[in-house]
C-alpha cells in the first residue's frame, strides 16, 4: 500500500496547499489533482434473492478513471448488479452472490475479505437521496470519516470543503453547514450524498440511478460533477436516461432479460460510442434508439 493516496482538493480560491496524510503516514506537500484509481473485473457472477436468480453469468472489465454506464429496461438486474460490486446485495434479505468481483486483482468475495473494507473502498450513491436526517450538512459529510479514526477539527473542515467542492455543492451550502441535511432540495441532497461518499476517499464510486428522482438542472450538475470526478475515481453508474449514458460515460453495458422470470444478462458491453452508434445485437439497438423500454 505504498500508493500516494492524494485526492485532496486544491482549491483555487484558497491558495494554501492542503496537506493530507498518505496511507504510509507521509505527508505530501502538494496534492496532485489526478489519481490513478483502481480497476474492477467481474467474472461469472450470479446473484440471487432467496431462490430467485436475478442476474446470471456477468463478466465485465471496469476501467480505472472511466465512467461505465449500465443501461437496460426496468427489472433487468442493473441495480442488483451494481449492488454486488460493493457487497450491498447481501444486505437485502436472501441476497446471495456467486462468482468473483476483483478490485485491483483482489476478490471482494474472497474468504478473508471484510465487507466493511470493501465498502470503504467502493462507495455508493443511491437512487433516492438519503442524507442522515438527524445530522447537519457538515456531519453528513464527515459521517463516514468519523467511523475510522480521530481527525483534527481543521483536518475535517478541509475534507468537508474539498468533498463539497468536488460534488459541486460547496457554493450553495458554505454558509449553512450547520443546517440539517434535510433542509436542502432533492438535487442538493443527492450531491450531499455524493460528497459524503467522496469524503471517505474510495477508489470506486457506484451510482445507482442517482438522478432518477431529480429535475433536469440537478441532473446536469451531477453529470458535470461526474466528469470531474473520474479524474480521481473509477465510476459505475446505472441510468435510465439514454442521453445521460451517451453524454457522460466512456463504456456502456446493456442489460436485458429474455423473458419474465428469467435472470438478467449483460447483453452487450463496449465503448459507449460503439453501443450507441453500431451495437452488435438487435435488442441493444432497439433499446438505445428508444424502440422499447
Amino acid at each position: 500500500m505504498e500508493r500516494n493516496k492524494t485526492k485532496e482538493q486544491t482549491s483555487k480560491e484558497k491558495a494554501t496547499p492542503k496537506k493530507q496524510e498518505s496511507q504510509t503516514g507521509q505527508r505530501q506537500a502538494e496534492a496532485p489533482m489526478e489519481h490513478t484509481a483502481q480497476s474492477m473485473e467481474v467474472n461469472g457472477l450470479n446473484a440471487y434473492y432467496g431462490g430467485f436468480k436475478a442476474i446470471t453469468d456477468i463478466g465485465m472489465k471496469i476501467a480505472p478513471n472511466k465512467v461505465t454506464a449500465l443501461i437496460g429496461p426496468s427489472g433487468c438486474g442493473k441495480s442488483t448488479f451494481i449492488r454486488t460490486l460493493n457487497r450491498m446485495h447481501e444486505v437485502a434479505r436472501g441476497g446471495r452472490v456467486e462468482g468473483e468481483v476483483l478490485l485491483d486483482g483482489e476478490d471482494i468475495y474472497g474468504k478473508n475479505v471484510d465487507p466493511v473494507q470493501v465498502r470503504r473502498k467502493i462507495g455508493m450513491v443511491f437512487q433516492k437521496p438519503n442524507p442522515f436526517p438527524t445530522m447537519t450538512i457538515y456531519d453528513n459529510v464527515v459521517a463516514g470519516l468519523k467511523l475510522q479514526k480521530r481527525h483534527k477539527k481543521g483536518e475535517l473542515d478541509d475534507i468537508v470543503e474539498g468533498s463539497l467542492r468536488q460534488s459541486a455543492l460547496w457554493d450553495e451550502v458554505k454558509n449553512k453547514l450547520n443546517d440539517s441535511g434535510m433542509s436542502l432540495s432533492g438535487g442538493q441532497q443527492q450531491r450531499l450524498c455524493i460528497a459524503r461518499t467522496l469524503a471517505v476517499e474510495p477508489e470506486v464510486i457506484l451510482l445507482d440511478e442517482p438522478a432518477s428522482a431529480l429535475d433536469p438542472m440537478s441532473t446536469m450538475k451531477i453529470e458535470d460533477a461526474m466528469l470531474e470526478l473520474k479524474k480521481r475515481y473509477t465510476i459505475v453508474i446505472v441510468t435510465h436516461n439514454m442521453q445521460q449514458a451517451s453524454r457522460a460515460s466512456d463504456y456502456t453495458g446493456f442489460f436485458f432479460i429474455e423473458d419474465m422470470g428469467e435472470p438478467g444478462q449483460l447483453w452487450e458491453f463496449a465503448e459507449t460510442e460503439k453501443i450507441f452508434t453500431r451495437p452488435e445485437r438487435k435488442e441493444t439497438e432497439d433499446y438505445v434508439t428508444g424502440r422499447f423500454g
Binding site: V116, R119, N130, P131, F132, A143
Partner: peptide, 26 residues
Amino acid sequence: PRDQREAMLALGSTRWEMFSKAVMPY
C-alpha cells in the same frame, strides 16, 4: 427506512456503527 441503513453501510460502517449512528438516531 432501509436506505438509512444502506447509506451508513456504504460508507464502510460495521453493523454496530450502522445501528448506533444511523438507525438509533432516526
